[in-house]
């Protein structure tokens, strides 16, 4: 059993942050890695990227958007409540080294994961430019945290209610045109966003890493549910990833695979209401 030591609702309650007491995982977790959790006895196993950790306090942080039954159930939990199972840290850590100037691009809840990676890049001594986007002002998360660790920060909103109006790709394009010293782009967010970022960086021939979050059960390579097509080769996001070379990812296939259970998800929500 894993206790929730702190709970915080962000973005009008659509996004929730948990600090979970898991000392052994906190000791090992590195940026880019994830956990698999199961809330209760009848719950499903879902992957959650580790957004932050505090090794000394023995705490890991997850930040999630409420999208389905499990995340709705998680939002209903209070500080002091328990999550039945947490396994991790899983996946390969992000490869962080000092390379110069990097651009961190995050969309929606992806910013939560990006934060952990960006922090590591900053600590490694890189010049970090961050671009974070959301649909509207209220949905922008972790702006202050990202600002603290970034050398430059741009916030975009789709409706222009805050920061730059438009998608994250617009300021990214500007940076790529003006700053030839950019060595790497790291993009985490909705699949469409990552796809568009990769299309753009390919034009400028800038290496791009994306973090994928496909459907998973075990998170240890056993089920193959998280298979993704990388350069026409089947790879498993849980053991070969979750970070991949964005220019080699078949994003369309990933979108199809991630929509397999949309109908079941609805049925399950209805069932839980009854």
């Amino acid at each position: 059993m894993f206790q929730i030591s702190r709970k915080q609702e962000l973005a009008k309650g659509t996004i929730v942050r948990f600090d979970i007491v898991a000392p052994k995982i906190a000791k090992k977790a590195q940026a880019g890695q994830f956990i698999i959790l199961r809330v209760n006895e009848t719950g499903e196993r879902i992957p959650m990227t580790i957004a932050d950790k505090d090794e000394f306090a023995g705490i890991i942080t997850i930040i999630f958007q409420v999208v389905g039954k499990t995340t709705a159930l998680m939002r209903s939990l209070k500080e002091g409540d328990f999550i039945r199972d947490v396994a991790g840290p899983l996946g390969r850590p992000a490869e962080v080294e000092k390379i110069g100037t990097v651009v961190m691009v995050g969309g929606g809840t992806g910013v939560a994961i990006l934060h952990h990676v960006a922090k590591s890049f900053k600590e490694a001594g890189n010049f970090v430019i961050s671009i974070i986007g959301a649909r509207e002002k209220e949905l922008v998360i972790l702006e202050r945290e990202m600002d603290l660790l970034s050398d430059e920060l741009v916030v975009t909103t789709d409706d222009g209610s805050y920061g730059v109006r438009g998608f994250v790709t617009q300021p990214l394009e500007k940076y790529l045109q003006e700053r030839k010293e950019i060595k790497l782009v790291y993009a985490i967010g909705p699949i469409v966003m990552m796809k568009n970022v990769c299309a753009l960086t390919k034009k400028f021939d800038v290496p791009t890493i994306v973090s994928l979050n496909p459907i998973m059960i075990d998170g240890t390579g056993m089920c193959g549910g998280c298979r993704v097509n990388i350069n026409n080769k089947v790879q498993f996001a849980c053991v070969d990833g979750p970070d991949f070379d964005g220019h080699q990812v078949d994003f369309n296939e990933l979108m199809n695979r991630n929509s397999i259970y949309l109908k079941d998800e609805k049925d399950c929500m209805l069932f839980s209401i009854h």
Partner: peptide, 9 residues
């Protein structure tokens, strides 16, 4: 046992 259990069948 879906939807008694949450994992889709």
């Amino acid at each position: 046992k879906f939807p008694e259990y949450d994992t889709p069948k």
